[in-house]
Amino acid sequence: MNTDSGILRSALAGEPLDDVLVIDVHVHWGRWLTMNLPAAEDGIVRKMRRAGVSKACVNGILNPDVAEGNDQVASAAKRYPDEIIGFAALNPYQPRPMIDELRRCVEELGMRGLKVHQMVSAPAYSPFPIDPLDAAWTQVWEYLDARNMPVLWHGVVEEAVIARFSGIPFVMAHGLSSPATFRALARYPNFHIETASTQNTRWYMAEAVDVLGVDRVLWGTDAPLDDFAHRWGVILDSDLSEDEQRMALGGNAARLLAL
C-alpha cells in the first residue's frame, strides 16, 4: 500500500476527493428485479457529490425495455450534465434494429459509449445463442469503431470482436478479478479492464499493472449495486503511485472518452 498517497489520506479522513478527476465507468440507472436499492438513480448523484466522484458513465441496461432505459439515462444526463455520461444499452431481441437504437442514443441523446450485458447473451436468459459477429452486431461495432467510442462489456463481446474492431476501446466489466482473461487478451491494445467486484486488491492490481500497464485499468463500481467509497479500496489499497492512482481513478477513462 502506498501510504504516502495524498488521495489515500484524504479518503481515510472522509474528505470528498474533489482535487482528483474520478470517473466511474460502470454505473446503472433504474431498478433491478426486486432488489432494494436505497440510493438508486438520483441517490447515485447525491452519493457522487458526497464522495467526490466527478463523473459516472451510466447505462440503463437493467431495464428490459432498452429504449425506455436509454431515455431514462438521457434524462439523467440532461439533469446532471456535468456528472452523468450516458452509455447506450442494446438488446438483439427487441424489434427495433440495434443500429437504429444506437444511432438514436449517440446522435439524438448524446451518449458516449455502449454497455452490453450477459443478460442478453447468457444461455440461461436467451432463446438463441448470440453471435457477436453477425450482421446486426457487426453494424454496431462498425459504427462505434468509426467513432472510437468505448464499450463496457459483461458478456456478448468475444476475442474476435476485440481483434477485429481495433478502434473500439473495449473495457471488460469486472475484468480486474479475471486475471486469466486479461492475460489472454492483453496483446490487444484496445483491451482494458475495470475494477468492479474485485476484492483481493493488492495482488490483482499488481498483476494487472504488470500485464496491461496502469493505463488500461479503469475504476468502476457497478453502482448502485456497490458503494463508491467502498470501491475506492481497490485502487487505494495497492502499491500504485499517486499519479498512477489518478490515472486509474479517472485519467484513463477521460482519455477513452475524449473528455
Binding site: 481515510l12 476484492q199 486488491t201 467509497a229 470501491r231 479500496g233 481497490v234 487505494l236 489499497d237
Partner: peptide, 8 residues
Amino acid sequence: FTPLQTML
C-alpha cells in the same frame, strides 16, 4: 479482502 474498502 482488503480491510480498506469497508473502512471507507
